[in-house]
Design a protein around this nucleic acid. Sequence first.
RNA 1: GUGGCCGUAGCUCAGUUGGUUAGAGUCCCAGAUUGUGAUUCUGGUUGUCGGGGGUUCGAGUCCCCUCGGCCACCCCA
Length: 422
Amino acid sequence: MKLQAIRGFNDVLPADTAAWQHLIGSARATFAEYGYQWIVLPVVENTNLFKRAVGEVTDVVEKEMYTFKDRGDEDLSLRPEATAGMVRAGIEHGLLHNQQQRLWTFGPMFRYERPQAGRYRQFHQLDVEAYGIAGPDVDAEMIAMSARLWKKLGLRNLRLEINSLGAGDTRASYRNALVEYLKQHEDKLDDDSKRRLSANPLRVLDSKSPAMAEIVRGAPSVLDHLDPESRAHFDKLQQGLRDLGIDFVVNPRLVRGLDYYTRTVFEWITTELGAQGTVCAGGRYDNLVEQLGGSPTPAIGWASGIERLVLLMQKQGVTIPDAAPHVYVCAMGETADRAASRLAEGLREAIKGLRVVLNAGGGKLKSQLARADRAGARFALILGDEEAAAEAVQVKSLREDTPQTQVPWAELPEALRARLHL
RNA sequence: GUGGCCGUAGCUCAGUUGGUUAGAGUCCCAGAUUGUGAUUCUGGUUGUCGGGGGUUCGAGUCCCCUCGGCCACCCCA
C-alpha cells in the first residue's frame, strides 16, 4: 500500500505555514480589537444539528457531509461549517440567554466535494459570530472587521457585495414571486436551473450560465419585496458602511447556499482565484437560535476560508514576517561544541524572541555555514576551541557585506541587539 | 455527481514508429579551498517510469481498470 493522504485532505508544509501563521495571528489580533472572544468547538456533532441548522435540502447536507455512526450507534457528522456548532454551544451553556456575545473560532471543516483550486474536502475557516444585537450597527461592525483584516494583511482588489434577503414573510413572498416568474420561462431554463427551481429557487439567480443571464436579469428583485423593517435595516447598513469609508456594491442577486440566512448577506470576492473567488461570506440569521431551541436571539456572522486567503496572499505577494533564524551557531571541536550549546541557551535567555539555531550533527565549517545560509540565518556565530577558551566568538553576517568581527560573549547580546534592531 | 488535461529522481522536465544497463537541469554530498556560506570548476548519490492487469519475443511508450493531481461545471469558504 502506498502511503498517501486521502483525496482533498492536505498537509500544510513549512513552505506555507508561515503564511498561515501570519494570517491566523492577524485575525486573532483583529478579533481582539473588536472585543470578540475565542471559543473552541468540536469537529463532530450530531447529524441532526446540521440538518436542522443548515437545511435538510441543501447540497451541503444532502450530499457533502461526512456522516457516520459511532460505536454507540450515534448518527454523527464532521462539521461542514461552524455556525451550527457555535449556536449549539451558545444555547447549551446559556451564553445566548438575554445577552450579547461576540465570539470567534477557527478550525477544519469537511465537505465531500470534488477538489479544485481553492476547494478541498478538509478546509479551514475563521469564523466570527455576534449574538443578541438586532441593529444594523453590528452588521457594519462585522464587515468593518473583515475589511480591517484585509488591510492588515495587505490584501487588495477585494470587492464587497451586499444584499438583503428580508425577514420572515418577505422571504416567502419573494420566493413565490421568483418561482412564478421562473415558471413562466421554464422552457428556457437549463437543467441545473430547473433542478434549483424546486430545490432552492434563489440559487437560480447566481447561475453562471450565460444563457441564464437574460432570464435572471428580468427576474424580480428581492429588494423590491423587502418589508419596511428590513428595508430600513439595509439602508442603515449602507449608511454605516459609507460612514466608515468601506466601498461596496449592492447585488440583488447575491444569495446564500445555507438556509438559515435572513436580511443582510454579504461576500468578499476576488477575481484572482479562478472559480472559487469567494474569500469571505456571511450574513444575518435572526431565526436560527430559536429554531434550534434557544430563546429568540438575533445573530450575524461570517466565515472565511484560510486556504483561499493564503492562496490570495501568495498571489498578491503580501509580505510575511520573517521567521528565519537570527543567528546560527557553528562549532568545531569538542570544547567548542559544549560551549556552543551554552552560548545558544544564554542568548535565548538574554534576548527575548531571538531565534537561535545550533548546528547539529557536526560537519566541517564550510558545511555548517552552508546550512546556516540555507536556513536563512542573518548571522553565523563561529566557535572553535580557541574562541571557546577565550569566551569569544566570530560574528559573520550572511546577508550583508559587513566585516567579520570577534566579539566576547559578554558583549554579544548587546552587539546582536544593535545589529538586528531588536 | 459531469467534463477536459495530466502522472518518468526531492523539484522542473526530455524520452523518437514499442528494442539492450531510463536521461537532462536543479537540489543534495564531496573535492578544488590551508576552520569561512550564496558564484565557478570537477566528481558522486538519487527512480517499483502513480498502482494493477492485458497485448507482445520485448512496454516508460499500446489497451483496460484503478488511484491521484490540475482546471471548469456543480457546490461554496
